[in-house]
Amino acid sequence: MLVGLGLGPGNPELLTLRAVRLLKEADTIFVPGRIAADLVAPYGDAVMLDFPMTDNEEKIRSCLEANAEKIAPVAQNGLAVFGILGDPNFFSTFSRLCGIIAERYPSIEYRTEPGISSITAFASAAHVPLTGGFVVSDGAEPSALIRLKARHPHEIIAGLKAEGYREFVLVERMFFPDMKVYRDAEIPKKSDYMSVLYARR
């Protein structure tokens, strides 16, 4: 098993309880650099992997493949934890790494565990309450949308389809014991107040 683990914005006190538990349980901890290595140090020695900051796709692919070969033997036989600053689903290389592992080692299961993202950390550090809708981008044109409190998802989806959105995922009561995840045609007409709808063009 491979777990992409969010380590938060860099302060060791902002690690989640789940992050601490997984770091202690890991057979091997992998990290992309020194800051992450320092964060996980109280819970285990980490193997630092090379993830170069470059636009050279050939070099990026080569490093991802080399890193996949280091992680795979651990993930095949035990628990490999890959600790990432912030959250592993926000602008991280974890999804690309998993794509390569899936190609080469399809039997390896992988998942992510959330960490405090730079977006929520920013709001706290800057004393800026994020209310109403807002856009998050790394400079690229936004291609996805997240709608909170999606109690009537079919009505919302009908409007989004008119705007060109085609892929939809609804998560109801996220991380509660009765959490449910629905995709596209599975999405119910009504959902809990604590529901989040994801849409992609």
Score class of each variant (00 low, 15 high):
S137H: 02
L15F: 14
S62Q: 14
P142V: 09
A185E: 14
D55G: 15
R111S: 15
A121I: 00
Y110N: 01
A158L: 05
I35D: 11
T93P: 12
A162R: 04
N77K: 11
T93Y: 08
I101H: 03
E155C: 00
R147C: 14
R147F: 07
L7A: 10
E58Y: 13
G78N: 04
D178N: 15
T16R: 11
L130P: 10
L130D: 05
V169M: 04
A125N: 10
M53C: 08
A75W: 01
R183F: 06
A46M: 12
R183W: 11
A150F: 11
A162C: 06
E25I: 03
I29E: 02
I187C: 09
F94G: 00
I108S: 03
I60E: 04
T131H: 03
A144E: 15
P42H: 12
D38W: 06
A66T: 02
L145Q: 01
Y182H: 15
L7F: 14
V20E: 04
E109T: 02
L17S: 11
S118K: 01
R61T: 14
P73I: 00
A75F: 05
V81F: 07
D45W: 09
A102S: 09
K149S: 03
L197Y: 00
S107D: 14
E65G: 07
M48Q: 15
F51C: 13
L7M: 12
K59I: 15
I146N: 10
S137K: 00
E155H: 07
D87H: 05
L64G: 05
E167C: 04
V169P: 01
F82Q: 02
N67L: 04
I108N: 03
T28P: 10
K70Q: 09
G132E: 02
T112W: 03
A121W: 04
Y182D: 10
S62L: 12
P142S: 08
A46N: 05
S107W: 09
A126T: 05
E65L: 14
E186H: 13
D138F: 02
R34Y: 14
S62K: 08
A102W: 06
R151P: 14
S117N: 06
L39F: 12
V136H: 02
V135R: 07
L39M: 12
M174N: 13
I119H: 00
A36N: 02
G6T: 09
D27M: 12
P32F: 12
F90I: 09
P73S: 04
E186N: 04
G99P: 12
Y193I: 09
R61A: 13
Y165G: 04
V31G: 07
Q76Y: 00
K189Q: 12
P106W: 10
V47L: 15
G139Y: 11
P32K: 05
A140K: 11
D38E: 15
M194W: 14
S62I: 06
F168T: 00
G132V: 05
N11C: 08
A26W: 07
L170T: 09
V40N: 07
E141S: 07
V171M: 06
N67H: 09
S118G: 09
I35E: 15
A26N: 03
D45T: 14
L130Q: 06
E65H: 13
S137E: 08
K161A: 06
Y193K: 10
T112V: 12
V20R: 08
L160Y: 11
R96C: 08
L148P: 13
S62T: 15
L145S: 00
R61F: 13
G33H: 10
M194Y: 15
E163H: 09
R21E: 14
M179E: 15
P153M: 06
